[in-house]
């Protein structure tokens, strides 16, 4: 018996060794985290419109440039308190074509973290303007404009929000109103607010569900800031 000569031995050890390691480091931890994730007290599930907005957020690839995770580091304090597993308990799959929770945590900050976007910029009008043309409100922004989340109409229909686009950025004629996807995305962005996390509260500390998860999630943050 030798790996050099017995191909089935070589192939089996290679494949099943990897499967075993995968269970230890990937699959079982994921299952365990999932089973122990409970929402923080005071968190609301996403409304139907906000959930649709999450779909727009994911489909347009916003996650390519924006994170939604605050690390227990001083430089992240501007974005909120350190994130805990419970913060994401309501980020759930979008549908049969994407039966996984969307990857909102992100990996790049070409733009700022959006964990508390709804708290930082609570104005619906600001959010619409910014999506219609980011440079209308942040001159140095390199974010893409999303005019396809809006309609340009002769006059705004009943109940529609007119986006007050300043002259250099406005269309030559008509007024700008958000379409359904635009409204959904802004509803989602405005819903991005961290729930309070009372210090010393036993339940809040165990945000991930069990005390053990709390240690790995929250307690770990104390370790991380050392």
């Amino acid at each position: 018996m030798s790996f050099h000569k017995d191909h089935w031995l070589l192939f089996s050890v290679t494949c099943f060794g990897f499967v075993g390691l995968s269970l230890i480091i990937g699959i079982l931890p994921a299952k365990w985290v999932q089973d122990n994730a409970v929402p923080l007290p005071g968190m609301q599930p996403l409304t139907a419109l906000e959930k649709q907005g999450l779909g727009v957020y994911v489909g347009e690839g916003c996650v390519a440039c924006h994170t939604q995770q605050v690390r227990p580091l001083e430089m992240d304090a501007a974005f909120g308190r350190p994130s805990v597993p419970g913060d994401y308990a309501y980020v759930t799959p979008l549908g049969p074509w994407a039966p996984y929770a969307p990857a909102v945590l992100g990996s790049q900050r070409t733009g700022p973290d959006l964990t508390n976007a709804g708290r930082r910029q609570p104005s619906e009008v600001w959010q619409y303007l910014h999506l219609y043309d980011p440079r209308a409100v942040v001159p140095d922004s390199v974010m893409p404009a999303y005019p396809w989340l809006f309609d340009v109409v002769a006059s705004a229909p009943e109940g529609a929000t007119v986006v007050p686009v300043p002259a250099p950025y406005a269309p030559a004629e008509g007024v700008v109103v958000p379409n359904e996807r635009g409204e959904a995305l802004v509803a989602y962005l405005l819903s991005l607010k961290q729930a309070p996390l009372e210090a010393g509260d036993e339940h809040a500390t165990a945000a991930g569900g069990s005390a053990a998860n709390g240690a790995d999630g929250l307690g770990a943050h104390a370790g991380g800031t050392r």
Binding site: Y88, P99, Y100, A103, L105
Partner: peptide, 17 residues
């Protein structure tokens, strides 16, 4: 999909993947 139903579980798998 079975162990990727919330964003943190998905993130664990994403790092692995």
């Amino acid at each position: 999909p079975f162990y990727q139903q919330n964003a943190i579980a998905e993130t664990v798998v994403q790092g692995y993947y």
